[in-house]
Amino acid sequence: MGKVILEVRELTTKYITRFREDVYAVDHVSLKVEEGKSLGIAGESGCGKSTLALSLMGYYFPPLHYMSGDIIIDGKNISGMKPDDIRKSVLGTEIAYIPQAAMNALNPTQKVINFIEDVIRAHDNTASNKYIYEMARVSFEKLGLPADVLQKYPVELSGGMKQRTVIAISAILSPKVLIADEPSSALDVTSQKMVIKMLRNLMEDGIIKSMIFITHELPLLYNVTDDIMVMYAGQIVEKGSAKETVFDPLHPYAKGLMGSIIVPEEGLRNVKLTAIPGVPPNLKKPPSGCRFAERCKFVMPQCRAISVGIREVENGREYRCIIPEDQLREAYKNA
């Protein structure tokens, strides 16, 4: 077992809506990412995976609020730190973020290099322009981006190029953890491939030590990440290695998620495409029992009554269901 780079313990964060209602979008989430490993987070839109990405940064602004839990990066617990200290010494250097819509992630009236200057000066205000330019040029070229991108405005870059520029900027301070929130979902297939390749390079070259990759496209996760975590209604419902989670899902929701996607993988080609009926519960008033009960094919009366905890099984796999794993597998076979 490698060195743990990121450990999250029971992290809970909430949104406060304009009607002063609390929405617990991340509910007691725990996870671990080891050095050189990547974790994929999957789920439908609105399941809390993007909020989890934001919450992991440890830097909160309304309407998102921190409630409880710890975020430990490379042995340092950042949960108790002052926001300004987090801004200076954690963001960008320890943990960095690639936003969902990289199309608009860059200030439209600023040249790429000027933005990089601002980023680096936010952590080291003694750096000279010349030094920053050299540093940026080197790291861009290392990632296969032409140096003249630095002198351009975002409008002058194509979509794929913009996305890769954003990734390069996020990685410029060699963060230990890189969180990529659907970095490829808005791109064409070629650009997608380049983005994925770039993320892999970052890991292989040791520029970043670990990565969290968030997407609703499961096959992508299977190709990119080592482990997969499935979220539903703000909670983790299943966690395990990528292969096991994709080919042998335990939780009925994870099973349904696999079933609703066309996966051109060996062994999954014959799976019938089935959508999961229903919608996720309203997190303003989450159900007291299992949150998936309303949509679950195997629901039993006690599901709605008791709050279900995480169950650990072999190979460090975890899932949140009261039905034992063999019974679940049996049920899937018969279905």
């Binding site: 801004r87 200076k88 963001l91 250097t93 960095a96 973020y97 936003p99 200030n107 980023v119």
Partner: peptide
């Protein structure tokens, strides 16, 4: 989006 991104890169 760029506001959020800039914030998460530690810009004041």
């Amino acid at each position: 989006d760029y506001v959020k991104y800039a914030r998460f890169l530690g810009i004041k």
